[in-house]
Design a protein around this nucleic acid. Sequence first.
DNA 1: AACAGTTGCGCG
DNA 2: AAAGCGCGCAACTGTT
Length: 585
Amino acid sequence: MTETSTPQQQPRWSLLGRGSDGAVSVVDVRADGSRGEPVRLAAEALPPFVAERECGSTATRWVWSDAPSWYPQLLAAGVRVERCHDLRLSHTILRQSELVSDRAALLAAHEWNAAPGIDADTPSDESTLFELDAGGTGPPTVPHDPESASAEFERQLAAISSSSDPNRIRLLLAAESAGALVAVEMRSAGVPWDAAEHDRLLSEALGPRPVAGAKPARMVALADEVRAALGDPAASLDSPPKLLSALRRAGIDVASTSRWELMESEHPAIEPLLRYKKLSRLLTANGWAWIDEWVRDGRYRPVYVPGGVVTGRWASSGGGALQLPRALRPSLRADPGWMLVTADVAQLEPRVLAAMSGDRAMAAAGSGKDLYSGIVESGIVASRQEAKIAVLGAMYGATTGDSGRLVPRLRRSFPAAMRLVDRAAEIGEQGGVVSTWLGRSSPPPGPHWAELQALASLPSATPRDEARARRTARDFGRFTRNFVVQGTAAEWALAWLAELRLRLAAMPAVDGVPPAPASGPVFEHRPHLVFFLHDEVIVHTPVAQADAVAEAVQASAEAAGRLLFGAAPVDFPLDVRVAERAAKE
DNA sequence: AACAGTTGCGCG
DNA sequence: AAAGCGCGCAACTGTT
């Protein structure tokens, strides 16, 4: 087979590895599995080499250890890649996936079950130190040498082709790998952040920026109000245990100091206390210290962690990128001459559930812009609020309260959808494994789980043991119930991102707009993704292309639906806004 | 002084 | 103390 492949045949993959001396080796792998001669390059020679390949008519899929270890340097040199195969992320999926029958070789390759590489994009003082004594203090990462990468790629190709549905798995790995590219690109471009606006919002809420260590004026005033209302001039508001005892001394009968419980009480100290807590949260999580630490040159650059959540959702590290309060959204502001295109999917998870379960009634309820209203119009519940509570309860496994009470109505109206999540819960309760639409599987319960169940089935088991085992089993059932929906929604979102990324890259760079140099050489002249939050994207774009970007975002959502679910009659309607600032909602 | 665990709240 | 899933982070607490 190797002999018959024509010399002109384009490589399907190009495998990158890095030696201990920093030199790079490139090995082309053709579709038939045959390999070319390794090409050795000095580190500096890699970007032009990749750039030249990317210009060719058939884009290479670069196979590398993991994106954060390779891609930042390329972007910094002005080189973008179209496709990759991320060995680390793919390993994590494959070693767990129930679609893959023989996982022994992958499971034995422990070195690939590791943390993401260190993003060398913007080395801080600390990470420079870490690099100097590499091998010591940092978290373990995957191997980058050519031999290890090559062996792992072989194992993965074997696992994929032996799986029960290679195409699904390939789609999942391609989507996950595209996400890895997006994550590095978004960090490189950064979120355009208007620190002055952020400062203004903080001052408006908290009072002027206090000197280091001091409390802002508005918080001091509120704290005084609370202490006066409690009749306790020494009450501490910042320590939950101390606050709790102060509240109880003042006759406020609460078991914790959390917001929802305080709201039940009528005492005059409560209202200022809740406002104090709100401000305290703003100050500590996203106050002036946050600006100083995270915003440079008008950009906020968090580290995104694709696959950081078991379900396949992304996590983030640094500055709480995925938890930015919506009140600070106006600080997310386009550069002069640029705009932000913000888009989010309405009710992604229930729509995904309707699609994967083939529930026609649920799909029909979601055929308009708002699935919850659709459920009300079908006469299943009386209000939109009830519809929302019922649907969330169904996906999360609510058994009590308003939510638990409403779920049975959904079971009658949407039997296929409910059967799917109920079945997932049942499997989890028995300690089993469930999988998403594309084949990402849930982790099995830990050894502790099995011990509890075994203990409860012994003749010597007490009612307490039994209750505890049952509760743990149900907890795990709720996890697997949600896993299939949350995980498949994450897959839809990855497909959306991947498609959008390609469409944006295909748009012509426009002359005559002010460049956005802070976004880096690859993106300073063209639309690029700057933010992603589970079911929402934000694109930073030259004004002239804003409308085209909005269309691309829409078209990408339609493509993602087709890619995952084919002709299933499920819509994924978007709310798309084009503005200078990200809207608050 | 450094660490792990808990609490509470931000996001979907 | 959420009922009902998945996270990250800061502050505080108790331990070593």
